[in-house]
């Protein structure tokens, strides 16, 4: 029986600054055999150890297909993230995972797929966006709406540019507060929902971002007619073990780590009722 608390060692392959406080790290397992077992699905997360500083959960932000390494996108906030930001290529970290459930894919085939991301919330959506796009002929349409506070807070800027020009995907950007050189939309990401023209009865939406943004966007989505099971999001909580033992991430009757992090709006509503 393997020890679920024992991290595998991975080495940082690439460090890519995304914004002034957010950086993407590409990690590859030192033991190539680990990758075989790792094989994550979009929506899953990992526990990353910076030994001495501690361990923290991060969603996997890279494609689940065609790679032998993976990315995490990290905002500098606490002890572990500060330590990570101080690390460079070649540094070693511990990885436990993949953990948690994942976004539905086959279950939503045949639908219009809408992604709504706010700020760092694009990170957990990215593997799903890439996977849906890879299998785009299974879906009626793909739309990505992404907003951040300012142009400087947009992550994956090079990729966003590509996405905006891709055939088979519609990608719209907005910022809450514009600035010099920003010629795009100004307004909260919810304001882009008016661009949605497809039949919401035939659609599924994946929403990730700060809690306040999720609250407003979900309210608008419900008003637009999206079903409670067709609004899918990820939840975050302070987390230690990632495997349903330490109890830190419990929300109502669910472990975010074990039963989530992906939940439908119907599930989230029930959790909020039990633990507002």
């Amino acid at each position: 029986m393997s020890n679920p608390y024992l991290p595998d060692i991975a080495t940082i392959q690439r460090v890519k600054p995304e914004t002034y406080d957010t950086t993407s790290f590409t990690l590859k397992f030192d033991d190539p055999g680990v990758w075989e077992r790792f094989r994550f699905r979009p929506g899953q997360f990992v526990e990353i150890s910076v030994f001495g500083a501690g361990e923290a959960p991060f969603c996997i932000s890279s494609s689940a297909h065609g790679r032998e390494d993976f990315d995490i996108t990290v905002r500098r906030l606490g002890r572990v993230t500060q330590a990570l930001h101080a690390m460079g290529e070649g540094a070693q970290v511990g990885v436990r995972g993949p953990l948690g459930n994942s976004f539905p894919l086959d279950e939503v085939a045949g639908k219009h797929v809408l992604f709504v991301g706010g700020g760092l919330g694009l990170a957990p959506l990215r593997p799903q966006i890439l996977e849906v796009y890879r299998q785009r002929d299974k879906f009626q349409s793909i739309t990505v709406l992404y907003g951040a506070r300012t142009p400087d807070d947009l992550i994956y800027r090079d990729e966003l540019e590509q996405w905006q020009n891709l055939e088979g995907m519609r990608c719209l950007l907005t910022v809450d507060v514009g600035g010099d050189g920003w010629t795009g939309n100004v307004g909260v990401v919810g304001s882009l929902l008016s661009e949605v023209k497809f039949d919401v009865g035939q659609a599924v939406v994946f929403v990730c971002g700060p809690p306040i943004m999720i609250r407003f966007v979900v309210r608008d989505l419900v008003a637009m007619g999206f079903g409670e099971d067709d609004i899918i999001s990820t939840l975050e909580r302070h987390m230690r073990c990632g495997i349903g033992k330490c109890n830190h991430c419990i929300h109502g009757d669910k472990y975010i780590c074990l039963d989530g992090p992906v939940f439908t709006y119907r599930q989230m509503k029930a959790m909020m009722e039990l633990e507002p």
């Binding site: 030994f51 501690g54 361990e55 906030l77 002890r79 993230t81 909580r237 302070h238 073990c241 109890n247």
Partner: peptide
């Protein structure tokens, strides 16, 4: 329980400690 790292020499240990869900910072995020 909660988990902390502790440096000792050129390495260290990872420890877990009893925690209490009644504590203010139990669910506090970074």
């Amino acid at each position: 329980f909660t988990v902390t790292d502790r440096l000792e020499g050129d390495g260290g240990v990872r420890e877990r400690h009893w925690d209490a869900c009644l504590y203010n910072c139990y669910a506090r995020e970074a």
